[in-house]
Simulated scan of single mutants.
Amino acid sequence: MRHGQTIAPLVALALLAAGPAPAQTETDAADAPKSDELKAAERYTDCLRLAAQTPEKARGRARTWEAQGGGDPARHCLAVALLNDGQHTAAAKRLEELARTLDTDSGPLMRAEAMAQAGQAWLLAGELEKAETAHSKALNLNRDNAELWVDRAMVRFQRANYAGAVQDLNRAQSKAPDNAMVYVYRASALRHLDRLKAALEDAETAVELAPRNPEALLEKGILHRLQGDKDAARQAWTRLLEVAPTSPAAEAARTNLTQMKSKTDEG
């Protein structure tokens, strides 16, 4: 699942752009220089690495590569560089265009991934409606990918469409029943719908699947507290502090524990 500004390479883009390499014997392969296919793949990888580390330099390199006929890999690298440079809207537009115009050999799955990445960029730009539209387009291309359902659920959650988020997470759960984070996200959405019993069941399932998952432990504690079981809440949050003391979830757990102690002292 996707978090922050991380955008993965579109698998095989460089290979598709370069076309098939000529057949070689084992001896030829040992002595021959790198094929155009391999060079393209390496250039794509290097460009994405630069986009993560020094995006302003990657922008210029990707534009030069595109002008030299770099095709889809160069265009994708440029979009990633823009995203990592904080130009989220420009990145989103480029990723949407890439999804529409990808080489037909890439197929619908790769176009779906590019459109999902556009959705992430729109989300970072604060354009929630456009983000949901992009993720819906991605799902129209590939409805069997659990991650894509989670992507749209996260946008729906931010739009306070908690029922819609639950629907998407139901689909994700049916396709990835062992993914703990699906249950964590659904537990949070159900909590916002005041369906606390079902939410706690999801949180407990998440902890069973991933006992050291900080988000699962945080959500479990929150739900126990909302249902009046302060001891169980304290146990969940204390466990979180033991297994992931420096995580963002741990900070939330410390705040909750402090608040709960203060209320107990006042009482």
Rank of each mutant, 00 (worst) to 15 (best):
L78H: 09
T104S: 14
T104D: 03
L82W: 12
A92C: 11
R75H: 13
Q68M: 02
G70M: 07
T101D: 02
H76P: 00
A79Y: 00
D72G: 01
L78N: 09
L102R: 04
L82R: 06
G71R: 06
L78T: 02
N84W: 08
A74D: 10
A81E: 09
W65Q: 09
P73I: 01
T89W: 09
E66R: 02
W65M: 00
G86P: 12
L102K: 06
R111V: 15
G70D: 01
G86Y: 12
L95T: 09
S106W: 09
G69H: 14
L82P: 10
A90L: 13
L98V: 04
W65T: 10
V80C: 07
A79P: 03
E97Y: 02
A74G: 05
K93N: 11
G69F: 14
D85M: 06
V80M: 07
L95I: 13
T104P: 04
G69Y: 10
L102Q: 00
N84L: 15
P73G: 00
T89F: 09
L95E: 02
L83I: 10
R100E: 02
T64D: 04
D72P: 05
H76D: 00
L83V: 11
K93H: 14
Q87N: 15
A67V: 03
R100L: 03
R111D: 11
T64V: 03
R100F: 11
A92D: 09
G69S: 10
K93P: 05
A99Q: 11
L109Y: 14
R63D: 09
W65K: 07
K93L: 12
T104V: 06
A91W: 05
D103E: 12
L95R: 13
D72K: 00
L83D: 11
R111K: 15
E96I: 05
L102Y: 04
D105K: 12
D103I: 07
L95N: 10
C77N: 07
C77I: 04
H76R: 02
H76I: 00
T89L: 07
L82Q: 15
A90P: 09
T101I: 06
C77P: 05
A74N: 04
Q87E: 15
L83N: 03
A90E: 15
A92M: 13
G71E: 06
T64F: 06
P73Y: 05
A90V: 15
Q68P: 08
W65D: 06
V80I: 13
L98W: 03
A99R: 10
A79G: 01
R100K: 08
A74T: 07
G86H: 10
L82F: 04
P73L: 08
R75N: 12
E96G: 14
S106F: 14
G107Y: 05
L78C: 12
A79F: 04
D103L: 07
C77F: 06
D72N: 05
G107H: 03
H76C: 01
M110I: 09
L82N: 11
Q68G: 10
K93E: 15
L78I: 08
T101F: 06
T101R: 04
R75G: 04
H88C: 10
H76N: 00
